[in-house]
Amino acid sequence: MFQAIVSASTLRDALDSVSVLVDECKIRLNEDELAIRAVDPANVGMVDLTLDAAAFESYEADGGVIGVNLSRLEDIAGMANTGDLVHLELDEETRKLHIQIEGLSYTLALIDPDSIRQEPDIPDLDLPATIVVEGTHLDRGIKAADMVSDHIGLRVDEADETFHIEAEGDTDDVDLELGRDDLIDLSAGPADSLFSLDYLKDMNKAIPSDAEVTVELGEEFPVKLHYEFGEGMGHVTYMLAPRIQSD
């Protein structure tokens, strides 16, 4: 049993954060929250999302699992205006999801959850540095790095207590330095890792610009990016595997 009403913008934020990594996913319809965990086929980027029941106008679920085609669902959610409410109801018999938006009815065929890649185990990470940064700063650093390279470095200078978003190109280099005053919070530790910009750009696209992003970082370790949406009742954690730094 699943029946819920949610604002179109909350639903879109949730779907966007997952669709940057995978085309299909399993959605767990738990009693107290909706949960998605997925990893991209190359095992490089992972998303772990929960949306509390309180984020919905109404929410009733009993622990079922459905499989969805994300771009199809995003297209439907895209038919709604920002303030619209989306009604979702699962038909257990036909395994279809009935979606209603302002008089528009859409019946979405679901995918057999067993045919979707298994949900990944969450890496066991104890990362030494934590940086809390405004989404706009992260966005600026990523844009700058993208001008010169395919890779992006995230680094903490422990002595200066600064966070660096940097990139080395064939000819040009960029470095965005964020000090304590620019950051919401910084817990310094040894942290310097290189990442594929393609992945980070995609993840960044899903992060709302007004979000606070908690970045957990180590030395040649995966990075964890955590942010909230849906008025603090939606939680996303991205994990991205590092690139080995050559030379």
Binding site: P120, P123, L125, R243, I244, S246
Partner: peptide, 13 residues
């Protein structure tokens, strides 16, 4: 070069 320098998350699970 790209394929070999990118690690996978499974290394940490």
């Amino acid at each position: 070069d790209d394929a070999l320098s990118q690690t996978g998350l499974d290394r940490w699970t």
